[in-house]
Design a protein around this nucleic acid. Structure first.
Length: 122
DNA sequence: TCAGTGACCAGAC
DNA sequence: CGTCTGGCCACTG
């Protein structure tokens, strides 16, 4: 089932370091399903990742494309700014600079996740 | 079964 | 920069 994908996504999201933002595609890739970026958005929007920090996930352009699904439209921005991430307002919506705040995950992190999937059988 | 729908994305121009 | 397109795939009515 794809339940496994959502469990993996939850685990990946919990590894996003404080003060950084990850992209949907990056999460999907680390899950081992590089083509499932849309399902990452689905998982976050339907609260399928438990207590994992969904607010640290933005799209490939740095846009907070899911801001509308939070308690208030500004909640995601507040949470990010609380971690020291600058959030810029544009006509498109809120943005973060991925060059500054994007999560540059290491190979070690990717390998660790892979071993976790295995040991947790997901 | 099947068409429509996204918190997506890379490439083309 | 900006817009459009085709591809992607789980989920839904």
């Amino acid at each position: 089932m794809k339940i496994d994908f959502y469990k993996r996504a939850a685990l990946v999201c919990r590894q996003i370091p404080r003060g950084t933002a990850a992209t949907y595609g990056q999460i999907a890739l680390l899950c081992g399903y590089p083509k499932n970026s849309r399902q990452v958005g689905y998982a976050l929007g339907h609260h399928l990742i438990g207590d994992a920090p969904a607010y640290r996930v933005v799209n490939a352009k740095g846009l907070l494309s899911g801001a509308a699904s939070f308690e208030t439209p500004d909640r995601q921005r507040e949470l990010l700014e609380n971690e020291g991430i600058e959030v810029i307002w544009t006509d498109r919506g809120y943005h973060v600079d991925l060059n500054k705040y994007g999560w540059k995950n290491t190979l070690e992190e990717a390998l660790w996740l892979r071993s976790e999937f295995k040991s947790q059988n997901i």
